[in-house]
């Protein structure tokens, strides 16, 4: 039982480091990188939580979120590459 608590705490620490990097980062790619690391760590956290709470069906959430996280990174990169930073109204300059 304490094994999962230790795992959760270590993962939370590395997530906090990723958040620090996400906040204080010079280029936009560092932020995407930090968010990507945060996402994979949250996948691990959900997996550990599935064992911590004794409900193994929570693992499906981790399964899905690992894919969603990757899609999010690709979408963010796509947006950065195409310089689409304006709000919903593209034509007002």
């Amino acid at each position: 039982m304490t094994l999962f608590v230790v795992a959760a705490v270590t993962i939370l620490i590395s997530m906090a480091l990723a958040v620090v990097r996400a906040v204080a980062s010079p280029t936009v790619f560092d932020r995407i990188l930090a968010v990507n690391m945060f996402g994979t760590k949250s996948v691990l956290l959900v997996a550990v939580f599935a064992f911590l709470s004794g409900r193994p069906d929570v693992l499906d959430i981790a399964l899905l979120y690992s894919l969603l996280n990757w899609l999010g990174v690709l979408a963010a990169l796509r947006m950065v590459e195409r310089e689409e930073f304006y709000s919903s109204e593209p034509d007002d300059d």
Binding site: L3, V6, A7, V9, T10, I11, I13, S14, M15, A16, L17, A18, V20, R21, T27, F29, D30, L33, A34, M37, K41, L44
Partner: peptide, 22 residues
């Protein structure tokens, strides 16, 4: 296994903060 995995995560987080460029 889990303790070394957690340690690797923290080391990577520290590396994320200390390395000079993307």
């Amino acid at each position: 296994l889990i303790v070394t995995g957690g340690a690797l995560g923290i080391i990577g987080g520290i590396g994320l903060l200390r390395f000079p460029d993307v």
